[in-house]
Design a protein around this nucleic acid. Structure first.
Length: 493
RNA sequence: CGGAGUGUAGCGCAGCCCGGUUAGCGCGCCACGUUCGGGACGUGGAGGCCGGAGGUUCGAAUCCUCUCACUCCGACCA
């Protein structure tokens, strides 16, 4: 850990606060490789919890896991025209398969003899390699639907990266499903969007808006892109997950056909959906404060930390014995507990460290508590403390963890709701964007040109057209042309 | 790819303009003692090819040339 004890203040240097927090809370750090991060054990544990929870949700909705190759032949990528166009600018390309000693002894060089016949792309996403495989797996309507997910790493050679939010290599899951009908594929797309939204709200305690992307913001190769959009504390939006209805685009590109019940040949309908380690960034920014991380109980590697307080060895032994007993009892209730019995750090140091790392609940036990049969319980989210009877811990802790979840969710939701502003003129739009930020609900004439112009002039993009959007007559804030509904604009990560 | 920075101890930095004993400081680390209910203190100690290569010079962390890397701000994007 670095020496500066305090983080930058969010109000003074939001992005400095974020970067320092990620590093100081031991979540991740920059590696020596440009744009790539090392996810440290504490951060990886959070990701594992996300992964395990999502994995179960996928399986509960009928999906199975599989694994497809890291390398994609260049020719595959170019089969779907808009897909390759979308990803071409950020591909890592493998051109050779061997190194050799440099003739001048200066080290190793790429062996020019070992040039690949066809270059391999390090996958930026796996639609192409997967649909190429699906061609062989699907012959009949009886083979459908095919509901497959993979957990993988992907590479997108971004010009500019940020820990968790945008790294050159990232971890994610990508679901790829194949269906006999368009309707079924759309239902799958929406179902998975709902899975993501449920995960965000129930596990990350992060409210999200479900919506559809405009044509400009659509995934390369999709017919429709659905998304969940979250709002960060600095008023910028973050796309937290996407679910795509691919139509028959990839089936067409890879010639994936099936025989229908009626004996006719038809192209398969597809979906794909994904969330990535970017969710870690969302999680960090959704709840944390100037003292450090605030983790939702469902994803916290440590839900309860017990800090013993003592002076003499006798006190230490007595207090630690009690702490160990409490830890054991709580673990029986499936609560993840850390009994911080390190004799090398003082309580105050431990308090600060576990706050920085976002542990939702802290129990402190000292000689006074042993005497009074009490413990001190402190909430990370509100920084409030109370003294409770030793015997009520086992009721108290699980309930309080639920309370903390609800409380941070509600706080985030209140903030998010307060940051949705309705505007009816372009002037007002620009003013809100610069002074307040957040989502702006405004009328738009539905054209890509208008969207582009607004983006060029204000850096705001249409985050989504909310799913349950009320229909309402109005005029486009830029062109004044008629509009049937409001859409959500924001500056985004 | 444009702009701005930074590479000196594990981390954060000073020193560089104006070349000159043994390269400093804070944190961290190690030892011992006192401490321990909100980031303890004292004493002692360990730790450096000053990003790399070349040059100028009696002498380079410092000046010159070249290079490599990373960070931040833009354009691009999950």
């Amino acid at each position: 850990m670095s020496n500066n004890k305090a983080l930058p203040k969010r109000s003074e240097d939001y992005s400095g606060w974020y970067n320092e927090l990620v590093k100081k809370a031991d979540l991740a750090e920059h590696s020596s490789i440009k744009g790539c991060m090392v996810i440290k054990p504490y951060g990886f544990t959070v990701w594992e919890k996300m992964r395990d929870t999502l994995d179960k949700m996928f399986k509960d909705t009928g999906h199975v896991n599989a694994y497809f190759p890291l390398f994609i032949p260049k020719s595959y990528l170019s089969k779907e025209a808009s897909h390759v166009e979308g990803f071409a600018k950020e591909c890592a390309v493998v051109t050779h398969y061997r190194l050799k000693n440099a003739p001048d002894g200066s080290g190793v060089i790429v062996d020019p003899e070992a040039k690949l016949e066809e270059e391999l792309i390090v996958r930026p996403t796996s639609e192409t390699v997967i649909w190429n495989t699906y061609r062989n797996w699907i012959q009949s309507y009886r083979d459908l639907p095919l509901l497959i997910n993979q957990w993988a790493n992907v590479v997108r050679w971004e010009m500019r990266t940020r820990l968790f939010l945008r790294t050159a290599e990232f971890l994610w899951q990508e679901g790829h499903t194949a269906h006999a009908t368009a309707q079924e594929a759309v239902e799958e797309t929406v179902q998975m969007l709902n899975v993501y939204a449920e995960f965000a709200e129930k596990h990350m305690a992060m409210p999200v808006i479900k919506g559809v992307k405009t044509a400009n913001e659509r995934f390369a190769g999709a017919v429709d892109t659905y998304c969940i959009e979250a709002l960060m504390q600095d008023g910028k939006a973050l796309q937290a997950g996407t679910s795509h209805f691919l139509g028959q685009n990839f089936a067409k590109a890879f010639d994936v056909r099936f025989t229908t019940k009626e004996g006719k040949q038809d192209l398969v309908w597809g979906t794909s959906w994904g969330v990535s380690t970017r969710l870690m960034g969302a999680l960090i920014m959704a709840h944390s404060d100037d003292d450090g991380l605030v983790l939702p109980p469902n994803l916290a590697p440590i839900q309860v930390v017990i800090v013993p307080i003592y002076r003499s060895d006798e006190e230490m032994n007595a207090v630690n014995a009690k702490a160990a007993e409490i830890a054991q009892q709580l673990r029986k209730a499936s609560i993840s507990v850390k009994h911080d019995s390190r004799d090398t750090h003082k309580p105050g140091f431990k308090f600060a460290e576990w706050e920085l790392k976002g542990v939702p609940l802290r129990i402190a036990i000292g000689p006074k508590d042993l005497e009074n049969n009490t413990v001190e319980v402190a909430r990370r989210d509100t920084k409030t403390k109370e003294i409770i009877g030793m015997n009520s811990i086992y009721d108290y802790v699980p309930k309080m963890l639920d309370t903390i979840h609800d409380s941070i969710y509600q706080r985030a939701k209140n903030f998010r709701d307060s940051m949705i502003t309705r505007v009816d003129s372009y002037e007002e739009f620009k003013q809100v964007l610069d002074t307040k930020g957040g989502f702006i609900s405004a009328h738009w004439d539905g054209t890509g040109e208008t969207e582009e112009r607004i983006k060029a002039e204000t850096k705001a993009t249409i985050r989504c057209i909310p799913l349950d959007n009320p229909q309402e007559e109005g005029k486009c804030i830029l062109t004044g042309k008629p509009s049937k509904e409001r859409v959500l604009f924001a500056r985004a990560y």
